[in-house]
Design a protein around this nucleic acid. Structure first.
Lengths: 207, 207
DNA sequence: CAAGTGACAGATATTGACATCTGTCACTGT
DNA sequence: ACAGTGACAGATGTCAATATCTGTCACTTG
């Protein structure tokens, strides 16, 4: 009785997953610029026309790929947001985790990252949804801090947006690329400094 | 007796200035990608070979153009850095000025900005020098705040680098472009929020 | 002799003919 | 009815021939 979607034996949309996996391997092999629907189809031993039975367009396929990738970034953050620690502790851990996981993804998965970056530039829905989720989690932590009297801020939204602006430097694709040369350690040190100032600001009720 | 450099009538390096001005107009007319030494020479009614008597290379010419442009950004900041106000006041005014002047330059001078951006990507000396100057001014303000007991921070360099990281979002060419659609007012509001948190952080000695 | 030039080699951009790709459709086999 | 196909038009990308540009030089001109 586990996920009985369509029939008992046939998987729900097995094909979509197989196509995505094939696309991912093509992406890693040839790079983002050379990801073609034809190559993906060839990898699966089918006609490229058939891909269009499962994805309405190449863009939709790429978006699905990016969505998968972004899930891996978001999932660990959800756990941190609901820990039983103080808001300050959670906030620091959460932001450091966000920064670290993004950095790791960029360095380990440059091809998939390229695709994500392209999607972000084109402002596709997937990336917007990801940003909303990130904001939601962050808001939860700050709100908890306010409720506990830990952060005497009046405007939670203003605080959240300030935190996001101030940490953009460490999270934004563009900047991550630039700091690819720096060690993970020195990146974390820089981030910790900003975080320390932000948390001190929150605690002293700057907003 | 005003600037008697070489002779009484002949200007010192008038020609360099004329070339730069011509280059600037070509740049504005055709865009950064189509700025050619030949076009600049044509504008001045001379052979392109003659340009090379005044600039060793096209790159040197572009750098000189960028340097001129960056001067206009830096000059107003120098005045703010040495005002007789408190460090907090100066810091806020200085950062807001930096953010506003950069934004204005980008919106009014997109072509020149393009050239600056290209130079920044190529990490030419001019841009490095600009960054050093900006850092120097910022360090002065923070150091004054520490000396006056206003900012109880131990590590001035750490504080300066944190301030720069946290405000990158508002100063970096790349992000300015993205926020081109937003109103100057809402940009300033966002910046003020971050600044408020940073200054509160400095005052509570987070570093 | 300082300011400027035409002619040149090698590097870089532009162009246009050609190949590949995307997305659709009527179609086949099951 | 449904997974899959070959063939197609129009969009997009590739590549080599061609044109333009950069940077240098020996040279003219006032």
């Amino acid at each position: 009785m586990s996920t009985p979607r369509r029939s008992a034996t046939a998987p729900p949309d097995d094909m979509r997953d197989r196509i995505l996996t094939a696309a991912e391997s093509v992406l890693r092999r040839h790079g983002a610029a050379k990801l073609t629907v034809m190559d993906v189809a060839r990898t699966l031993g089918m006609s490229h026309a058939n891909i269009y039975r499962y994805f309405p367009s190449k863009t939709a396929l790429q978006d699905a790929l990016v969505e998968r990738w972004l899930q891996q970034v978001v999932v660990p953050l959800r756990e941190i947001a609901v820990r039983p620690d103080t808001a300050s502790e959670r906030l620091e851990a959460w932001l450091l985790a966000l920064i670290a996981v993004k950095r790791r993804k960029v360095l380990n998965d440059p091809e998939l990252f390229e695709a994500y970056h392209a999607a972000a530039e084109a402002a596709h829905g997937v990336v917007n949804e990801y940003h909303r989720e990130v904001k939601r989690l962050l808001t939860r932590i700050v709100r908890d801090g306010v409720a506990a009297g830990e952060f005497p801020v009046r405007d939670v939204d203003a605080a959240v947006s300030a935190i996001r602006d101030a940490t953009t430097r460490f999270v934004d694709p563009h900047h991550i690329r630039r700091t690819a040369g720096k060690s993970a350690r020195s990146c974390e040190r820089d981030a910790r400094r900003v975080l320390a100032m932000l948390i001190a600001g929150l605690r002293s009720g700057a907003l």
